[in-house]
Amino acid sequence: MTLWDLTQGASAKVSSFKSNIQSGYRTRLSELGFHPGEHISCVLSPSLGAPKLYRVNNTVYSLDDSIASLIEVA
């Protein structure tokens, strides 16, 4: 399952990144807290495919499908 599949209110642990992710993205996402082992919850999933809101630590980020679907969660 990827982060994008997480439904509103659900939370999960980052397990890994998809292998086709650019290394720059991976580093940046890690620095922001999207790091294997970290708990992430989806706080808001707006309709019509708009970017979803994810919470990691005390910060909320908005990620669109192109990037959220590169993060594997379990």
Partner: peptide
């Protein structure tokens, strides 16, 4: 060039 993905702090 490498482009930034849409990751926006709320």
């Amino acid at each position: 060039r490498t482009d930034l993905p849409f990751v926006l702090e709320m």
